[in-house]
């Protein structure tokens, strides 16, 4: 998960832990950090990428474009936008870039926990 808001990441980690799913959650505060992780040959391929839209310097769309261009990543890896933006333009842009989903950030912890729980075992 990449998000410039550290508290969002912290809440996400907490909800992820509560959801009880076995897959680990890794968090990054900007796009370049995520990209460095993805090209790391010893790290495991992620099962899902959650990308914030409004980030400084490299926004979510830039991140998705850069990720899609990586040879190291399995092309089938789903990418979901996870954002506070409810703008139709942002949603359409994300889907046009090949995102599997466009999710508005949950407003309760239980919704956030369910988001992770729904991801898998």
């Amino acid at each position: 998960m990449v998000d410039d808001d550290r508290l969002d990441l912290r809440l996400a980690r907490r909800c992820h832990a509560r959801s009880g799913i076995a897959r680990p959650l890794e968090t990054f505060t900007d796009g370049p950090a995520l990209l460095r992780r993805l090209v790391d040959p010893v790290a495991a391929n992620p099962g899902l990428l959650l990308v914030d839209v409004r980030m400084p310097a490299m926004n979510g769309f830039d991140v998705v474009r850069a990720v899609k261009a990586l040879d190291e990543l399995d092309a089938a890896t789903p990418i979901a936008m996870l954002t506070t933006s409810r703008l139709d333009a942002d949603r359409e842009r994300a889907l046009a870039l090949g995102c599997a989903a466009y999710l508005v950030k949950p407003e309760t912890s239980s919704d956030f926990t369910r988001l992770f729980a729904g991801w898998g075992p």
Binding site: D5, D8, T84, K105, T108, S109, S110
Partner: peptide
């Protein structure tokens, strides 16, 4: 609105009485 929404959402999530932690 965007920049206020994020911390407000955090307060809501952290203080949710139905979801104590």
């Amino acid at each position: 609105a965007h920049d206020l929404q994020t911390p407000v959402r955090h307060v809501l999530m952290l203080s949710d009485p139905d979801d104590p932690d």
